[in-house]
């Protein structure tokens, strides 16, 4: 038999897991019990964090990486991939998460940033990273730093989809503009987006972001999921929307169904029926702090 070497942590391997999560729902959980509920409801992955975003908003203070013990309990409780959040620029938290063997790290604006100028050098890690973006330039800067998956930021913890819609539309409009540009215009476009020109050139050729684009921030109903999938998101992260609703099991299940059948309004209507109260929402115009503005 021919001997061949194995390569771990290649970019194909890192984005490969994101490819497998497409069409699925990644649910925020703070403990093993919530992780089990999420898996039972059909989550493709769970995101471990210390507090869900709406509680971070309410309680304030510095929001950090979860306790490693909680992450290990969540890993033991479920068979699906486990992601965990690290603060922007906090590479020591990311090193700890990698040592725990989490499957993806979210360098997240929902936690309190640790570095106001720099993000983590994600190429120096074997574990893949997802990062938030509000526009194409931000997405491409994160990809240049090694992110293998981009999500919209939305405005986490508000239950209000308006910011996620803005971010998805902004990213997709910028991609459309690039595909219409001629080769000599791409340099100025790169300058305007503050993004590497090679990534802009790649988009001009393929018409797509170089990594999958998921949606996060403010999804709280099945209809929200159907909306963002139709706007081009390839999967959804749901934070406070599940465990801050009146019936987490039902909401989780319904959002999973709506994410798969987003093009079939009859299915989305069926799963939306009799769900009870969604999480209480917040008007984003009156927020004291906007998490989406974190990230450089």
């Amino acid at each position: 038999m021919t001997e061949h070497t194995r390569s771990t942590a290649t970019f194909t391997v890192k984005r490969g897991l994101a490819d497998m999560l497409r069409g699925g729902v990644i649910m925020d959980v703070v403990n093993a019990e919530q992780a089990r509920i999420a898996e039972d409801a059909g989550a493709v992955s769970v995101m471990a964090l210390e507090r869900v975003p709406s509680d971070i908003r309410r309680d304030g203070g510095v929001a950090r990486m979860s306790d490693p013990q909680l992450i290990e309990e969540i890993q033991a409780a479920v068979s699906i991939p486990v992601m965990a959040k690290a603060r922007i620029g906090h590479f020591a938290e990311a090193q700890i998460l990698q040592s725990l063997g989490v499957d993806y790290i979210d360098e997240s604006e929902v936690l309190t940033p640790a570095d106001e100028a720099n993000h983590i050098d994600k190429w120096s890690f074997d574990v893949p990273f997802v990062c938030g973006a509000t526009n194409l330039g931000e997405a491409l800067r994160r990809i240049a730093e090694g992110a293998a998956l981009i999500r919209s930021k939305g405005e986490a913890g508000t239950g209000n989809i308006v910011e996620a819609v803005r971010h998805l539309r902004s990213i997709n409009a910028a991609i459309r503009e690039i595909t219409q540009a001629d080769a000599s215009e791409l340099f100025t476009i790169a300058k305007n987006h503050q993004a590497p020109v090679n990534l802009i050139q790649e988009i001009a050729e393929t018409g797509k972001l170089p990594v999958p684009l998921f949606c996060a921030g403010g999804i709280s109903t099945p209809a929200d999921a159907a909306l963002v999938l139709q706007l081009g998101a390839e999967a959804v992260f749901v934070g406070s929307g599940i465990f801050k609703s009146s019936n987490p099991q039902l909401f989780a299940r319904a959002i999973v169904e709506a994410t798969t059948h987003y093009q079939d309004a009859a299915v989305v209507a069926k799963v939306s029926r009799g769900l009870g109260a969604a999480m209480a929402g917040l008007e984003t115009a009156t927020l004291e702090s906007r998490y989406a503005e974190r990230g450089w």
């Binding site: 290649t10 391997v13 490969g16």
Partner: peptide, 28 residues
Amino acid sequence: GRQLASFEGHVAGHGPLDGAALPAVFIR
């Protein structure tokens, strides 16, 4: 294994796939 053990490599083909090894991506 978990994601950290995910890898790219080659699979040896047999029968109808005898020939050059097949590139393969293993994800969890």
